[in-house]
Structures are given as C-alpha cells and as structure tokens.
Design a protein around this nucleic acid. Structure first.
Length: 262
DNA sequence: ATGGTTGGTAGCCAA
C-alpha cells in the first residue's frame, strides 16, 4: 500500500498538477493540506474519475484538508482536531481504511505555521501541538497500525534545512517547536522519512521567494509519523522533489511511503 | 541583502 501526503497550496489553482502527479505516482491513499476550499467546493468528481473516494474537511479561503483513498473509507473518525471547541481552523481529518484483518488509520494534519514568534499565532501552534499529542496518545492505546501525515511546519533538526541559520527566528525552528515534535516521537512514533532516508539534503518545501528552489534553499517540514504496528510493516519512503520544478508548482512536494498493508 | 512570490479574497492576509 502506497500512502502519500502533499500540501498543494490551493486545490483550485493546483487541480491539474494534482491529477498529473496522482496518475504518475498511483498512490492508494493521498492526504492533501491547504486545499483553501470549502468542503462543498472541493472538486471531488475529478478524483473520483481516477478511482478515489474523498473525505474533506474544508474551510473557505484558508487551511482545509482532504483524504483520497482508492478503498472506500470504513469511517471518517474525526473532523477537526479534538480538544478545543472554539478552534475554527480546518486542520485535521482522520479516517479508517479497511485492510485484511482490520484497518489502517490515517490522520491528516495541517499544523499551524506559528509565525511570527511571540504572537498569539505562535501560542496557538504550541497549543495545537499539545492537543495533537493528546490525540496521538489516544490512538496509541488502540495498538493498531496508523500513520499521521501532513504539513507539520516543523524543521526537526539542523540537517533538515539547507541553511539552518536562516531559520533561527522562525516559528518552524524554535526550541519549543522542536521539543514538541521530539515529544511526539518519544511517545513511540517513527519519523518514516528520517528512518528511510537518513542524512542531510532531503527537503519537502522551497519558498516561492528569493530563488529558494533554484538555490536548493529547502527545508524538511512535511512528515509521516508511524505507530509501532505501522512501522513494523514499512517498506520504503520517498520525496517526489521533481514536482517542484513543474509549471505552477506547489511550494511543497509529495512525500510518500510504502507499507505491507493489504 | 529583514529581501521577495503565490493563492484566495476583495480591495490585504496567510504562508
């Protein structure tokens, strides 16, 4: 089973690019972030023509997440990250996909950017990460295979940036941000891309500005975390960097894994 | 080099 995540930065502006990549990569499950679309405005029919079912948690203008799956969903477990009824941002959706002998649970997240540091936006990011950790602890209690995929907006380590010094004042690289990400891993999760592609030079985002792509001034902020039961079935992982060079690209590229889950 | 680019919305904000 091939499972992917991609921050597409607007589904309406990126529909052709998204369809081109899906035909090329042929994933079984795709998690999309920043669809910037209301749920009812999501172009689900275009993906259904390629054989996918869509689960959408959208919002007009900003944020928004969607899961595409060739297999029909058993259930949409969660729309919106639990733990704060006043949080109106559409940043999390969780589905269960059937497999032989059970399900594989898919959590699709768009973690807050948090810039600028020192504002309520940064406080919201850290609070969101605490709530996400709480949900993760619940899922670990089920002792089942699950993956948490998405745009984490976290640069975990210095090797995850071409030029770490350029990010020292950024919310993506603050000590508190990195500590919260480490705390997630310390619950017992595996950073799938780090495990399969150790070492520097693997990035998932290049800013549109200042020639970041041309200079390979990238960062690794799109991650896949696996539960122990999922990590045991891991086969491979990759980053489809070439899509950043396409016409009208997203500033993020797809990240994927293959696992023995039938 | 505290710059500059993109998408969605509406006459700026988020990233």
């Amino acid at each position: 089973m091939k499972i992917a995540t991609w921050n597409i930065n607007g589904i309406k502006a990126r529909l052709d690019v998204a369809l081109t990549w899906i035909k090329e990569a042929n994933p079984d499950i795709v998690c999309l972030q920043e669809i910037k679309s209301a749920t009812e405005a999501f172009p689900g029919a275009a993906f259904e023509e390629l054989g996918y079912n869509a689960a959408v948690h959208g919002q007009k203008g900003f944020n928004g997440v969607a899961v595409l799956s060739k297999r029909p969903f058993d259930e949409i477990a969660v729309r919106g990250l639990p733990g704060d009824a006043t949080d109106s941002h559409a940043r999390y959706i969780e589905v269960c996909v059937p497999r032989q002998g059970g399900v594989v649970r898919i959590g699709n997240l768009y973690l807050p950017n948090g810039n600028p540091v020192g504002t309520d936006k940064f406080a919201y990011k850290l609070a969101w990460m605490q709530r996400f950790a709480a949900r993760t602890r619940e899922l670990l209690g089920y002792e089942e295979p699950f993956f948490l995929l998405g745009d984490y907006n976290v640069i975990p380590e210095p090797i995850d940036a071409k030029n770490p010094a350029a990010w020292t004042s950024d919310a993506l690289y603050q000590p508190e941000t990195r500590a919260a990400y480490r705390a997630l891993l310390n619950l017992g999760l595996t950073d799938v891309v780090r495990a399969c592609l150790p070492g520097p030079g693997f990035y998932t985002f290049w800013d549109y500005q200042a020639g970041a792509w041309q200079k390979d001034h990238g960062i690794r902020i799109d991650h896949i975390l696996a539960s122990p039961q999922a990590a045991d079935r891991l086969l491979a992982a990759g980053i489809d960097k070439h899509t950043r060079g396409w016409e009208k690209p997203s500033d993020h590229v797809p990240v994927w894994l293959e696992a023995e889950l039938d």
